[in-house]
Nucleic acid binder design. Structure first.
Length: 510
RNA sequence: GGUCCGGUCGUCUAACGGUUAGGACGUCAGAUUUUCAUUCUGAUAAUCGGGGUUCGAUUCCCCGUCGGACUGCCA
């Protein structure tokens, strides 16, 4: 495919949630796969819903995911500006063009009048409850007001909008890359506002004008836009422009219950819906992000890619660059997908296990510093942390688990898990630990291999049950019946520390 | 209410009109293990209903049903 140009066009009305990220991802993958250009365009034509910081949030989030743009706010491009509020002047002339052609018209109805009309139609249980061919003759617009008066009203500075003149009873046949042919009769459509009284275009106008001007070849967006596709078709035709190809992605649904995923679902469901943390500047409400929860960006992206798309093979783990090679629109499903927090965790586990120990160590070091966790300098050291991560990464679901899972590598257990203690600390245990301590004292550096051999030999020779020694020893060193191979732990934390912990236990238990 | 889009294990999904309907997550069981995990093995469970078309429908068509989206001077 030549000259593929796709855009992600969010509106900065709040943080981007995972549905939006997935739309961006699919656009990005489609562009990469087809050697195309990926564009970010900010659709901020609604000044009322503008949220400060949202624009930055969107860009930062996608950057965290590794989704990059060829053209956009931060990188510029020859179709700049990429923000609709900065393209304001462009839209009016196009709206006027449509009016001149008779494809659009002026309307002067106030919000109250519109509401009244809708209410009336609803009460009448009319089959048509819209501003269209059936009702427009009863409203205040170019059809009911003389051209002279219209001109005068506009010159007087009266508020007006420009509406699209939807034709009556025309079959609009559309093509969608995911759904195939879709047909709608124009009589079921309404005369959408194209140009608002505040001097800005609505989404419908701005999106068509900009897609045309920016030479967009494929429009890949959420299914919620499918109902306005006929309008967009009509708009392209009215301008006499060639249409891009369209693909409407299935929605991401709530994990439980009904409806599409919304920002509130995260709190109740115990999982983030946003890529990174977000604080609403107006209400100060905080929303958690995948990044801060401890998800790896590549795992997050991998999970998203498989929500509504599949490779056709049984492979499920894909790097971003792999996806760039194999992504196709044809493999995108039609049905909405319920979001699955459990599977998301699984993806993250897979990624953590496959990451180099050192990379995890860097994360952990950062974490220790950020959380201001006190430990000795020799422990806040990449080499040491790398070994720690090597031992514990199989147990982690989130990156943030890493510290909790290995806290005994940084400090002696403060107290012992009561149930475990009760289970394994018996009357003769203290004695046994005393003996173990004496043996360990004689071993030079507590290397895992040597220690294991020596201790095992001693246990066998004395015909003691293995668990009778190892379990309480683990409690003294770790504080609980958990964690990696005990001899590996001993080697890592070192002889002094091991002896100290055993001694403390002997002195404080029973 | 109207318009449109969907419906395969609980969830994500695979299956030129011909498969014992496959995989993954989850759950359960077993194996391994000094513990917790990991890992391995096994089990579990699905074509929304009714009509067609066809030698044969998960697959194509119609109806119903269920679910979703849209129905703003929001995007």
């Amino acid at each position: 495919m030549n000259n593929v140009r796709v855009r992600f066009a969010p509106s900065p009305t709040g943080p981007l949630h995972i549905g939006g990220v997935r739309t961006a991802l699919f656009n990005y993958l489609f562009a990469k796969k087809n050697n195309g250009t990926f564009i970010l365009r900010i659709e901020d034509t609604d000044q009322l819903r503008y949220v400060p910081g949202a624009e930055e949030y969107i860009m930062d989030s996608l950057e965290w995911c590794g989704i990059t743009f060829d053209e956009g706010i931060r990188q510029g491009g020859k179709y700049a500006p990429y923000k609709q509020s900065e393209r304001k002047d462009i839209y009016q002339q196009f709206a006027n063009q449509l009016v001149q052609k008779g494809a659009a018209y002026y309307a002067f109805d106030t919000p109250e009048e519109l509401e009244e009309m809708r209410k009336k139609l609803e009460q009448q249980k009319s089959s048509i409850q819209q501003y269209n061919y059936a009702t427009r003759m009863e409203m205040k617009n170019s059809f009911t007001i003389s051209p002279e008066l219209i001109k005068q009203k506009i010159e007087n500075g009266e508020n007006y909008v420009i509406r699209f003149n939807i034709p009556e009873n025309v079959a609009i046949e559309m093509q969608d890359l995911i759904r195939g042919k879709v047909t709608v009769n124009s009589s079921t459509l309404d005369d959408k506002v194209l140009f608002k009284s505040d001097g800005l275009p609505t989404y419908h106008l701005a999106n068509i004008v900009d897609d045309h001007l920016m030479q967009i070849s494929h429009v890949i967006r959420g299914e919620e836009w499918l109902p306005s596709l006929p309008l967009h078709y009509l708009l392209y035709d009215s301008f006499g422009w060639e249409k891009p190809q369209f693909a409407h992605l299935p929605l991401i649904l709530k994990p439980t219950g009904k409806g599409k995923l919304s920002k509130r679902d995260g709190d109740s469901g115990g999982f983030p819906v946003f890529p990174i943390d977000w604080t609403d500047p107006n209400t100060n409400e905080k929303y958690a992000g995948y990044k801060q929860w401890g998800y790896c960006p590549d795992a997050f992206v991998n999970m998203l890619a498989l929500l509504g798309w599949n490779s056709g093979t049984e492979q499920e783990i894909f790097s971003l660059s792999e996806l760039e090679q194999i992504f196709t629109i044809e493999k995108v499903g039609k049905a909405g997908a319920k979001f699955d927090p459990e599977k998301t965790k699984w993806f993250n586990e897979q990624y953590i296990r496959n990451k180099p120990d050192e990379e995890l160590a860097n994360y952990l070091l950062n974490f220790l510093n950020q959380q201001n966790i006190q430990t000795t300098d020799d422990k806040k050291n990449i080499e040491y942390l790398t070994k720690v991560c090597h031992l514990i990464k199989d147990r982690a679901t989130l990156l943030t688990d890493l510290y909790q899972l290995g806290n005994y590598f940084f400090e002696a257990p403060k107290d012992y898990e009561p149930k475990t203690l009760k289970k394994f600390w018996k009357e003769d245990t203290k004695n046994l630990m005393e003996k173990v301590k004496n043996i360990l004292t004689t071993i030079e550096d507590l290397s895992a291999h040597d220690t294991e051999q020596i201790l095992k030999t001693w246990i066998e020779e004395n015909q003691i049950a293995f668990g009778k020694v190892m379990n309480p020893l683990r409690i003294l060193l770790v504080g609980d019946a958990k964690g990696p191979h005990l001899f590996d732990i001993m080697q890592l934390i070192g002889k002094d520390e091991v002896l100290k912990r055993i001694e403390y236990g002997i002195n404080n238990l029973n």
